[in-house]
Structure formats: structure tokens, C-alpha cells
């Protein structure tokens, strides 16, 4: 099981900011594909953080990870 976090427009699109994902996909890429399919959203320009560190698509996932989907940021 892993925890998914959705921010900004993503949270509004899927109607939840935090979701429990019942299984652990092998990689970030695999998770992104599953999430896109499940919610009908595009994660094309979205960055991913695993346990608060930016992660590439090929990064592996592990039980208990927190994965955040981070749209292009606009702070400042």
C-alpha cells in the first residue's frame, strides 16, 4: 500500500487530495500510467516526489511510500 497526494488542479480534478493505493507499482512511471487510467487525467507535465524527494519516472516504489504529484509550481 502506498499513499498518493494530489495538489492544486489535480486535487480538484479528482476530488481528493489524498488517496490510498492498495498495491505497489514497480516504478513511478507504472504508477502514473495507472493513475491516469483510473482518474482520466494527464500527468504529462506533472513532477513526482517520493517521500518528499523529486523522483524520475524509472524510480522504484516500495511499500509505505508517499508519492506526491506536483504540477508545475508557481510560488514566489
Amino acid at each position: 500500500m502506498i499513499r498518493l497526494l494530489f495538489f492544486a488542479h489535480l486535487g480538484e480534478q479528482i476530488g481528493e487530495r489524498q488517496v490510498t493505493w492498495p498495491h505497489v507499482p514497480k516504478t513511478v512511471k507504472q504508477l502514473k500510467d495507472e493513475v491516469e487510467e483510473r482518474y482520466g487525467i494527464s500527468l504529462g507535465r506533472v513532477m513526482t516526489a517520493v517521500n518528499e524527494e523529486y523522483a524520475r519516472d524509472e524510480a522504484p516504489l516500495h511499500e509505505g511510500d508517499t508519492v506526491a504529484f506536483i504540477p508545475p509550481v508557481s510560488g514566489g
Binding site: A8, P72, S74
Partner: peptide
């Protein structure tokens, strides 16, 4: 300030007179 706009996970939502939108990179 340039790095904040690249890597810090903060987002702003603009509220205008005729609607609103989350702003991606500026």
C-alpha cells in the same frame, strides 16, 4: 527567488473578476 519558482512545491490560484485558475509555471 528563481529556484523557488523551479523546485518548491507551492501553487497559486488566481481569482479574477470572471473566473479562476491554478497557475503553472508563470
Amino acid at each position: 527567488i528563481e529556484r523557488i519558482k523551479q523546485i518548491v512545491p507551492i501553487w497559486k490560484k488566481e481569482q479574477w473578476e470572471d473566473g479562476s485558475a491554478w497557475i503553472g509555471d508563470q
